[in-house]
């Protein structure tokens, strides 16, 4: 009898008694300054029960509110994608909110998004010679620096992204081994593992998180103006562990040219919290001993994010980057 009793102390299915099981409307909209307002509408699904795909909602009524007034209706671009686009361009200095209504799923409304101001990259440069033409598939780490001026007396939030591309001129041979013609490749993505920095602005608010999320290798970074409010600032960072995947037929001894594209996004506060929490949720090691990460939402009665951003993009060319050429389609990257 004892053996039986001990055996039953094991894993058992129990009833889920959560209060929320019905799908909620998920509204995701990240609008760029000077671009048309756009959102994606889908449904959440209950964790409990049958595993199913996410449903996209293309028959909702989506309205844009500018400074508290309903100003535009966003229309679905098709019957299946759940994407809606309006006719209103997002302007600096105005506040926008979105409402989504659906006969079955009710009505949700975003918080009013704070206005964003474009912060230009005033200058960008390479800080090391090591990034000069290197004829190998593994590229050296690149140390970059950008200069920008944080607006005075405002709480600003930033996201810094890098795209790293290369071009190469080489002679391609045909199937018979005969040299065919000179080909210039342009704009291939080079893979890099992370952008890193010891700059206090870059690290600010991040040290602890990185220690918590041990495995994170960020390919972009978020920071605030807490340490640089109203100042012009030079931010240095490193693009680490770059590599170009081997392409069939490519003569790897040919000269390569690099182009580092840097984007400084000035983002709304809500968007900052959303991306920060998404990063956290994606980077944690799942398991019984890990605290769950709550992802930020500013959609009332629903889930999702309504945020604004303004981009400034600058490019650093290394070598004489080819202006035209052939982009070969067979080249692919896996991450």
């Amino acid at each position: 009898m004892l053996a039986t009793l001990f055996t039953i102390s094991c894993t058992r299915e129990i009833e889920f008694k959560g209060s929320i099981t019905e799908p909620k409307m998920v509204v995701n909209g990240m609008c760029s300054l000077d671009s048309l307002a756009a959102v994606e509408v889908s449904l959440s699904k209950a964790k409990y029960g049958n595993i199913q795909e996410f449903t996209r909602v293309s028959d909702a009524r989506v309205y844009l509110h500018t400074d508290g007034q309903k100003t535009d209706q966003l229309l679905a671009i098709d019957d299946s994608s759940g994407l809606y686009i309006g006719t209103t361009k997002i302007e600096q200095g105005k506040k926008y909110a979105i409402t989504v209504e659906h006969d079955e799923y009710g009505k949700v409304r975003s918080n009013e998004s704070a206005t964003v101001k474009r912060v230009n990259i005033e200058n960008s440069m390479l800080m090391s010679d090591s990034a000069q033409r290197v004829n190998t598939e593994r590229l050296p780490d690149i140390l970059c620096k950008i200069k920008f001026s944080d607006p005075v007396d405002e709480e600003n939030f930033y996201r810094l992204l890098v795209s790293y591309r290369f071009g190469r001129t080489y002679n391609k041979t045909d199937e018979n081994g005969n040299e065919k013609k000179s080909i210039t490749l342009i704009d291939y993505h080079a893979h890099f593992e992370s952008i890193e920095s010891t700059d206090p602005v870059f690290m600010q608010g991040k040290t602890n998180d990185n220690m918590v999320f041990d495995e994170s290798n960020p390919r972009y970074t978020l920071f605030t103006d807490e340490l640089i409010n109203g100042k012009q600032y030079e931010l240095a960072f490193n693009i680490n562990k770059s590599m170009v995947y081997k392409i069939a037929d490519v003569d790897t001894s040919a000269e390569c040219f690099y182009r580092v594209i840097i984007e400084l996004q000035s983002i709304s506060k809500d968007l900052y919290y959303y991306i920060k929490s998404i990063d956290g949720a994606n980077n944690i090691t799942s398991g019984l001993f890990t605290e769950p990460v709550q992802v930020y939402s500013n959609i009332n009665d629903g889930i999702g994010i309504w945020g604004m951003y303004a981009s400034s993009v600058d490019t650093i060319k290394v070598g004489e980057f080819p202006e035209g050429g052939i982009v070969e389609s067979h080249y692919s990257i896996s991450y």
Partner: peptide, 28 residues
């Protein structure tokens, strides 16, 4: 803290298209 729902994340905008993907998010 128990996940009760899941939903699709937003595609993050920007020049690096490799970051422009959606991931399932657990809602607590």
């Amino acid at each position: 803290t128990l996940g009760i729902m899941e939903y699709n994340s937003a595609k993050l905008p920007g020049i690096n298209s490799t970051l422009n993907y959606q991931t399932p998010v657990t809602e607590y």
